[in-house]
Design a protein around this nucleic acid. Structure first.
Lengths: 132, 132
DNA sequence: TAACACCATGTAATAATATAACATTTGTAA
DNA sequence: TTACAAATGTTATATTATTACATGGTGTTA
């Protein structure tokens, strides 16, 4: 059973904003959008983001410095993330492919190092942009 | 045959520094280190870094905002990069595993999107840090 | 050689992203 | 009901990256 995380006030405000968004949100864009709700400082945003990432409710898209809500209801894969990124329209989707995640989770390299976490970002053109 | 890129003065200075380093270097740390060589401004560093990334001589470690020299003599895999990162000592190595790169290069997801590029970062503890 | 394209350089200013430090408050569990 | 962990609030500052504009070198070609 998944541990239930009761989000705090700021965490909830920020998660809801990210969850409603159809694109990755950047920290200062989030800040701008929640100022009417009483969140005034960058640090308040970053603290909530850190926590949300930690518990797997959101993921950071490292190549874009932006955040999206986890698309896996269970949110159990925050240590094994994969995304597809369209280099034209910047649409980002979380990839949920069990073969891929199994392959990567079990990956062991020559040094014998076993990994506890990975992040994979694929780049290309999405359907829409390809047909333009 | 690989295209030969003749590095410009600034590009060479900055590549040499990164290449000699045993750890990923950050842009402003690079700037600090090359000021004696007449490179004074962040933009000079970023321009060289951009070019070096583009031609595959170095790679950016996205999760660390840092740069390392490509470990593959051919430097042909700048569109297919994988790294191992020790979360304790921050040692970063480029993974050169043909099975992995084949698997990922041929990866096609449900949407039929074919990717032209990927970047993968594995996290864990390196041998040394594990045995501490 | 003049005109041009192309790439690289130099410099100043500023934008965008992220953290440090410190004080206070809230939730929760012993 | 104390005591601890987590979250909040606020100011300042550190770090990372880009915009804008001017200059310089090199090769092509008309």
């Amino acid at each position: 059973m998944e541990k239930q995380h009761n989000l705090s006030k700021n965490q909830k405000i920020i998660f809801d904003l990210i969850d409603k968004s159809h694109e990755p949100l950047k920290a200062y864009s989030i800040l701008f959008n929640v100022q009417k709700k009483g969140i005034n400082a960058p640090l308040q945003v970053y603290r909530a983001l850190d926590k949300l990432v930690e518990i797997g409710k959101i993921h950071k898209i490292e190549s874009r410095n932006a955040f999206i809500a986890c698309q896996n209801s269970s949110c159990q894969i925050s240590k094994a993330t994969a995304f597809s990124i369209c280099e034209s329209c910047e649409k980002v989707s979380e990839i949920n492919n069990s073969k891929l995640s199994k392959y990567l989770s079990n990956f062991v390299d020559e040094t014998g190092m076993k990994y506890s976490k990975y992040n994979l970002e694929f780049f290309g053109l999405c359907k829409k942009c390809k047909s333009k």
